[in-house]
């Protein structure tokens, strides 16, 4: 398990990192290294240059600014899991973080790395979609905002362009009638999501479902928004039957992965079960 040879530079500033990326087309950003290094050891990835952004100041933070939650790309899973602020204003994030890997992984891996990697079984993409997050991409030419729905393009492919670094994740704060939940089946070997469903619901003043936002990972080549589930939920009060009916659409219209652990049929079924569970838990928390 020895990687191919590569060069390594520790960038001191974002500009320096961007410049290095601009000069070296095949260079890769090194964040927590917990997806990239394993891939390199298997020689699935053989970047000639790693640009380490781990020591750049001000890429790791969790803050609230005018009703917006801002999370720096280098914030670790553990920092999110243990954030009292997030537990209060966006509990889906700490809950989701707690499902990632083990303690070591959570201490090294970053939200930015995970989102930029877009592993089809990674946990963050489901939450990012369910929270309607916006992602701040920066390059030599400046910054641009990408909506979560546009960010995950395909298997391990995102809207980030060559030379771009994901700098920040932004989430609008929700109101107090919002309930969130993450439900996951862990792969027994890797710990990644066989299925992971993030639900973010807002009820109206009568207890009806005003807004539903459901992100699902593990099921297909990339995380996706379960539009059919959302529309089946919106507009009426949520009871067990209503939730089950909506959840039945969890995998509508997606190409479902099948593997040794979970066939296509079983995964479809799991998507429905975990969607139901996530929605039920979110509904309860919203009420």
């Amino acid at each position: 398990m020895i990687s191919a040879p590569f060069d390594y530079v520790r960038a001191n500033t974002l500009d320096e990192a961007l410049a290095l990326l601009a000069q070296n087309e095949d260079a890769k950003i090194l964040a927590g290294g917990h997806s990239l290094i394993p891939a390199m050891k298997l020689r699935l990835a053989m970047p000639p240059l790693l640009v380490d952004i781990g020591r750049i100041k001000d890429l790791s933070y969790i803050r609230e600014d005018h009703g917006q939650i801002q999370i720096g790309a280098m914030t670790t899973h553990y920092q999110i899991e243990s954030s009292d602020l997030l537990k209060k204003i966006c509990p889906l994030l700490p809950e989701c973080a707690g499902h990632i890997g083990d303690v070591q992984v959570r201490n090294k891996g970053t939200i930015g790395g995970s989102v930029a990697h877009s592993d089809p079984s990674g946990d963050w993409p489901a939450a990012i979609i369910a929270l309607n997050a916006e992602l701040v991409a920066v390059s030599k030419n400046g910054e641009r905002l990408v909506k979560a729905d546009d960010f995950f393009v395909d298997l391990m492919t995102t809207a980030l362009e060559a030379g771009e670094i994901l700098r920040e994740i932004r989430i609008n704060k929700s109101n107090d009638r919002t309930g969130q939940a993450y439900a996951k089946m862990h792969h027994p070997a890797s710990g990644f999501a066989v299925v992971g469903v993030a639900a973010n619901l807002t009820l109206d003043r009568n207890g009806g479902c005003e807004k539903a936002s459901i992100g699902i990972t593990g099921v297909s080549s990339k995380a996706y928004r379960a539009l059919a589930v959302e529309s089946a939920l919106t507009g009426s009060a949520l009871d067990e039957q209503k939730i089950a009916n909506a959840a039945a659409h969890a995998a509508d219209g997606v190409d479902i992965n099948g593997d040794l652990f979970a066939s296509e049929d079983y995964r479809r079924h799991l998507a429905q079960v975990f969607t139901k569970r996530a929605i039920a838990a979110a509904t309860e928390r919203a009420g």
């Binding site: 394993p38 298997l42 792969h187 027994p188 070997a189 890797s190 040794l260």
Partner: peptide
């Protein structure tokens, strides 16, 4: 330990082999 029909080792790492 799973080998496929071609005799390829499917569970070649601890990502797949569930200890």
């Amino acid at each position: 330990v799973v080998y496929d029909e071609q005799g390829q080792l499917v569970t070649g790492e601890l990502m797949d082999y569930a200890l």
